[in-house]
Simulated scan of single mutants.
Amino acid sequence: MSADATPVRKPSAVWAFALVPIALLGVLIAYLVITGGGLRELSGPPVEQVKVTRVTLPSEGLVRLQVVNDGPQSVTISQVLVDDAFWAFTASPSTNVPRFGRVTIDVPYPWVEGDAHHLQLLSSIGTVFKAEIPVAQRTPQPNRDLFWQFGLVGLYVGLIPIALGMLWYPWMRHLNANAINFILSLTVGLLIFLAIGTWLDALEFAAELPAFWQGVPAVALVALLSFGVLLALGTRRNGEEPSPLGVSTRIAVGIGLHNLGEGLAIGAAFALGEAALGTFLILGFTLHNITEGVGIAAPLVKKNPGWRAFVLLALIAGGPAIFGTWLGGFAFNPVLATVFLAVGVGAIAQVVWEVGGMVVRASRHAGLPNATWLNLAGVTAGVVIMYVTAFLVKF
Rank of each mutant, 00 (worst) to 15 (best):
G357H: 00
K394E: 15
S363W: 09
I77R: 03
K303I: 00
T372F: 02
S59M: 12
A331R: 05
D84T: 11
G329C: 02
T35S: 15
Q66R: 13
T249M: 10
A232E: 06
I255W: 01
I316S: 07
V229N: 11
N333L: 07
P46K: 14
S59H: 09
Q350F: 08
V345R: 01
S74R: 11
V222F: 04
L39W: 09
A116W: 10
L225Y: 09
L25V: 13
A377Q: 05
V301I: 10
E354S: 01
F89E: 13
N178L: 14
P72Y: 15
V80K: 00
L39R: 15
V216W: 09
W353T: 02
V339H: 01
L24H: 05
A5N: 03
L312R: 13
G26Q: 12
V8Q: 13
L155S: 07
T325N: 07
Q141S: 15
A337Y: 01
L121E: 01
A85D: 15
M358K: 05
V55T: 11
G356R: 04
F89Q: 06
P305R: 09
A276N: 00
W373G: 13
A309V: 04
A195K: 03
L376P: 00
T53F: 02
V351N: 05
A377K: 03
P108R: 07
Y156E: 08
N238L: 07
V112E: 14
V339W: 12
L65I: 06
T325Q: 02
A88P: 09
G126M: 06
Q350C: 13
G36P: 01
L159F: 10
V301N: 03
A317V: 06
G239P: 06
E60I: 03
F227W: 07
V20R: 07
V339S: 04
E132S: 13
V393P: 03
G189S: 13
P134S: 09
L57Q: 02
L164A: 10
N370Q: 13
Y387A: 08
W199F: 15
F100S: 03
F227I: 01
K302Q: 14
L209G: 03
M358R: 05
V294K: 04
A349E: 04
V335S: 03
Y156T: 05
G37P: 04
L119S: 09
L230E: 04
V379D: 00
H174I: 05
A275M: 10
G344K: 06
V107R: 02
R64E: 10
Q49K: 12
P305G: 08
Y109E: 03
T35Y: 12
D201H: 08
D70S: 15
R236C: 00
L146T: 10
M1Y: 12
I29M: 12
